[in-house]
Design a binder for these strands. Structure first.
Lengths: 187, 187
DNA sequence: AAACGATTTTGACTTTTGTCAAAAGATTGA
DNA sequence: TCAATCTTTTGACAAAAGTCAAAATCGTTT
């Protein structure tokens, strides 16, 4: 997931660099149910969420909706695969709640490589974080039962429990709706 | 996994840069069963495999050995988490067969950022590949049955089937040994 | 408040996967 | 070569998770 591991403070930005960076992020709002990205599009924006909640998902071969991530306050919204590799996204990213965020375009972001020396380092760090997150996620599927994955989810994102449909959580942790319901009943 | 998606040709290296890069990679051999990395150590090397095969694994809470990756000819050996974030590895990386490879140290690699402009780009690309791989891996756990994950493994890495213990494959795709045996029997 | 739609729970049942232990097979090294 | 060890298969059973359909619940809108 994508919550809170990123903070601008970690980088030794100069005042100059901070200004320049922020000048490329433009504030933007979305209403609930609007799309940040649709399948088929090449992802052209990174967003930094300051209020609200979004969800990423795709459809598998049997047309099941599979949730792949949640983006709450403090998260970066990125469809990494499409954004990095410049091919059409398989994923949708859609606002669950009204959202306030700052966005930067792919093109503007590319220009920062020239303008801000630290930009390389920031992007490297962001990539590293994503890698760690995905390693952990794969490991949880590899070694934990459905019940344990649910517990882990609750511990990691207690606030999301109240904010999203259980069905989204079910597919996110890779279990059937009905199974999640039963898992929750047994304490 | 870590096979074949990386090739030096993709980058617009100058002759100069290639020489400089390669001068930092030093050839090295390992015998089967030697360790490239042990749990508890901070990963200090990236290896590029030219012959042989290695495996990464860790021990879960019940002391089961969990295989997390294979590194055959053409792969980069990296313990991404430990190498990038400079903390002790949870994983072991061990040669399954005698190995020939070229390695570069963390320190030398850091210096390339200064010496070779394209190094940033290369590392970014490597990171992006790792992210895509892990996204795909998480997705396969999320949406496929054990049987399907095994089929996918066979298609993706047919050559590994003959070269590694089935037990390693079983834990890599997240199923019990006995279950994999049964999966294999049903065609 | 009633009604509609979406979400969640539940029941009855099936399928998949895990567990444990023993047997069979393969590999290795003395 | 033969024993010792490791790996894989198998059987009998148990537990986990999926399926399908119906009921219950919740939220919204009228």
């Amino acid at each position: 997931m994508n919550i809170g591991k990123w903070s601008i403070d970690k980088y030794n930005f100069t005042e100059e660099e901070i200004k320049l960076t922020l000048s490329h992020f433009v504030p933007q709002q979305m209403k609930a149910n609007e799309f940040f990205l649709k399948a088929g599009e090449i992802s052209n924006f990174i967003g930094y969420v300051t209020r609200g909640l979004l969800r990423s998902y795709f459809y598998d071969d049997q047309a099941n909706e599979i949730t792949t991530g949640f983006f709450a306050e403090g998260s970066l919204i990125v469809a990494a695969d499409s954004f990095n590799n410049r091919f059409p996204s398989k994923e949708y990213i859609k606002a669950i709640e009204d959202v306030e965020m700052s966005v930067i375009s792919y093109k503007d972001q590319m220009e920062l490589y020239q303008q801000i020396p630290a930009w390389h380092q920031i992007c490297k760090e962001l990539g590293d974080i994503k890698i760690s997150e995905m390693l952990e996620r794969a490991e949880s599927f590899q070694t934990l039962s459905a019940h344990e994955r649910y517990q882990q989810f609750c511990e990691a994102y207690p606030n999301l429990l109240q904010r999203v449909n259980l069905g989204y959580i079910a597919s996110f942790i890779g279990v059937d709706n009905a199974t999640l319901s039963r898992i929750r009943k047994k304490k």
